[in-house]
Amino acid sequence: MRKIRFIPLVIFLLCTLLTQAQTPLANPPVEMADGMRSNGKIYVVVGVLVIILFGLFAYLISIDRKVSRVEKSIEENKK
């Protein structure tokens, strides 16, 4: 009697395993731009952005130095 009760329990447990096994099939992997990276082309974009960023930094630094020079010249005029 005990063994007979045990059988449906095992079947139900196997059913849960089955549904779990199916979940990856129900959710296919999300498409990402992995191919772009593997082709190496994303490095071009990164390169372009780094160049732009460094151009902006150079510009900011030059403005910063200009302001420092003006500050200095005002100080010297006072003396």
Binding site: R37, V45, L49, V50
Partner: peptide, 24 residues
């Protein structure tokens, strides 16, 4: 300069979670 350069390089090259709608 260091932090932002790192951000642009790592921001494009580091792995990100694959999510619907958002993608890259």
């Amino acid at each position: 300069v260091v932090f932002l350069t790192y951000t642009v390089i790592a921001g494009f090259l580091m792995p990100v979670p694959a999510l619907e709608i958002l993608h890259e």
